[in-house]
């Protein structure tokens, strides 16, 4: 079974841009270790002859390999605007600046 070290927890946190306290690092290292033991149990099952199931409708898909998926034709669907003419998606934004989503400073 893979060992989760505190260093690995910190690395994953860094990649996810999470700031963890030392207490949290200790706590999550233990929890991640527990999750891995659970995965180990699943991995003990012999699946040698079982096709991996990735797609919910995989069986139908596999039954007819000459069948292409349903594509979308290359046609523009005009994006929706709010009543004031601004893009509809911005209605959900907590903060907007000159039509852009405003987020905390990245760099």
């Amino acid at each position: 079974m893979a060992e989760i070290s505190e260093a690995l927890t910190r690395r994953v946190a860094e990649l996810a841009r999470l700031r963890l306290s030392q207490a949290e690092v200790t706590q999550f290292t233990g929890q991640l270790q527990q999750i891995l033991s659970y995965v180990d149990q699943i991995q003990a099952v012999d699946v040698t002859d079982v096709e991996p199931l990735i797609y919910p409708n995989a069986s139908r898909e596999a039954a007819d390999s000459s069948r292409e998926p349903a594509f979308r034709a290359d046609r523009v669907v005009e994006p929706r605007n709010a009543a004031d003419g601004s893009p509809k998606v911005l209605e959900a934004a907590p903060e907007i600046h000159e039509g852009a989503f405003q987020v905390p400073q990245i760099v």
Partner: peptide
Amino acid sequence: IPPNANTCPICTGHPGTLPVLNEKVV
């Protein structure tokens, strides 16, 4: 093009949306 004028719930990653592949891309 004004910022975010060419967007919708799918390309802005809203929960519950599903992508459908553009045939011309293929």
